[in-house]
Write a protein that binds this DNA or RNA. Sequence first.
DNA 1: TTAGTTTTTGAATACGTATTCATTCAAGAT
DNA 2: ATCTTGAATGAATACGTATTCAAAAACTAA
Lengths: 340, 340
Amino acid sequence: MVTKANRGNRNATSEDVAQLAGVSQATVSRVFAGGANVSEKKRKKILDAAAALEYKPNAQARSLITRKTMMVGIIMRNIRDPFYSAVLEIFHTRLSPLGYQLIFNNSENEIIEEWEIAKLLEYNVEGIIVTDALLSEGATRKLKRSGIVSILFNRYAEGLNCSAVYCDNYLAAQQIATYLVEMGHRTFAFISGPRNTSTTVDRLKGFREVLLERKIKDLTIIPGTYTYESGFQAAQELLTRNKKIDCIFCGSDIIALGVMDAARLVGFRIPEDLSVVGFDNIRMLGWTPYPLTTWEQPLEDMVTSTVDLLLKEINEKNAVPRIIAMKGHLVIRNTVRKKK
Amino acid sequence: MVTKANRGNRNATSEDVAQLAGVSQATVSRVFAGGANVSEKKRKKILDAAAALEYKPNAQARSLITRKTMMVGIIMRNIRDPFYSAVLEIFHTRLSPLGYQLIFNNSENEIIEEWEIAKLLEYNVEGIIVTDALLSEGATRKLKRSGIVSILFNRYAEGLNCSAVYCDNYLAAQQIATYLVEMGHRTFAFISGPRNTSTTVDRLKGFREVLLERKIKDLTIIPGTYTYESGFQAAQELLTRNKKIDCIFCGSDIIALGVMDAARLVGFRIPEDLSVVGFDNIRMLGWTPYPLTTWEQPLEDMVTSTVDLLLKEINEKNAVPRIIAMKGHLVIRNTVRKKK
DNA sequence: TTAGTTTTTGAATACGTATTCATTCAAGAT
DNA sequence: ATCTTGAATGAATACGTATTCAAAAACTAA
């Protein structure tokens, strides 16, 4: 038998609570939505009734009326890279206390197309964070028209009308190059991520500029995919050529690990025979086989900025997209040969 | 001016589409909800109108009426462990094509309490997956009462009335122990995860049984936390004692990496001076410094089983909780000394 | 006391969809 | 032509909440 009390085993609603507490549904709502004035006496009664019925507000019904879902979508590439696992963890740590739920999406694509955000649109997320990838023009337009904020993390695109937070790769590459040259290196290789991404382009630009200034021309470029295997394979190629190479600059730490393992396998000692520099400063670098000199991305700060930007754009309708570059710094360990 | 057409910049609704197509809202709904019969002529008109207005169904409104949110919560510990990054990726790969959205939650707790699932309840997820942790009794009861399915991944609890999918640790430990004894080892250490978890208890049981059978009593147990640092430190302790140890069995690959690095640092060669066995078979083990012999968990199959179970319990009201053990197998690489 | 002010409250409504129910429509059988 | 049947449709309703509006209640000041 379905009585008023058990409602066929459905969860209690504000209506049920109202009935038990002897008030109207509106008053119950006022208690749980916060803000509005409710007399202490009734508030207490309502809270008691709610506890008795194990009442919890229904998020779907709520967002239907408030037009706020308090959900954010995150689309990640390369979640298996420890750098990005950390990114995800930190995003959750930041967003959860603000009451946002995080809808996780994995993608293997360099550019996120419309079909990949379709479900997030249906669910009316308030914002979308994209890490290590771009949004297609179509996707960006669609988001804009739907009034959904989007932010690129660790990538940016000039014409795209989309906010971004990234590590200043141009500056980083300049400083890395300067350091390497000062340490006496003359012939370089750069194992990058995919071509034509802001990350790769900026790093290449910064690195090249420094070399040009010093009249060094010896730079081999091998685009890769930010994976261990990609680094391993590129290094094998590089090191079995006739040409001697002083130093390999890697687009990510994971690439660098592949490079180091490949190099050691062919008999190169690091840093005596070959210097290696990474990028990211993932936690693993504290592990003994990989004392990698690298560029630390200010991960926590980058996430904080991203979340700030997200909130700002969610609240300020028509905010102008911003692109924020963050600095980072060189972490010197033990994979770059000292000056002779 | 707010006209019928632009509705103050809100997204188009089924009502808008209906109006433009010259049909009723009900018919529009029938087209998008699928199943029901609609004449080809009108269907075409509706789809055209929907495309013109960029209509997409509103998930919140839909779930309010269908009582299905098509959302699943996942609560993960140790997301930085590559094993669990992979787990997350695979869960997404499996669930996404089924139309489920994945709400990601991170937790550092061994036991998930009620407050950690509260938001997921408000959002009416249809199920909750918990990896590498348990649900508290209170949380389990609450979920049950709310009609939300919960499944433990890689843990189980006897009395908890909660489904689980895990790797048969008892069996695994038995086979590992057998292998190690046959290889001639006699003194052992086991660096486990946290005490009193099913994982640790089962492995210990299996390992001990085999040793007992062979009258070997030399087993030192050090509980840890499934981290590199935990393994590193435990190994340092173990190896600087007077007591000689043949072989260390590690609760996870990541622990084993810490152990190997610590051992090498103290001058032990692996496997000549010390054998090490891991658990999980994470991808990193293909990397050259860590040719770890380990137990492979059938990751893909475990996720598949978990998803199957999840769907089954979501659809069959009152399904009996099931606990599924999966087998896995030994992967022999190069960190266990061969029989003399 | 009374008039005026503020706070508290409930009835009614809207959010955007799926579904029920009754009605219309088209087609096939006689 | 009529009757029967099944498909196609629209009107109305429900899902569970927040919010508006007007009424009621509780204070304040005189």
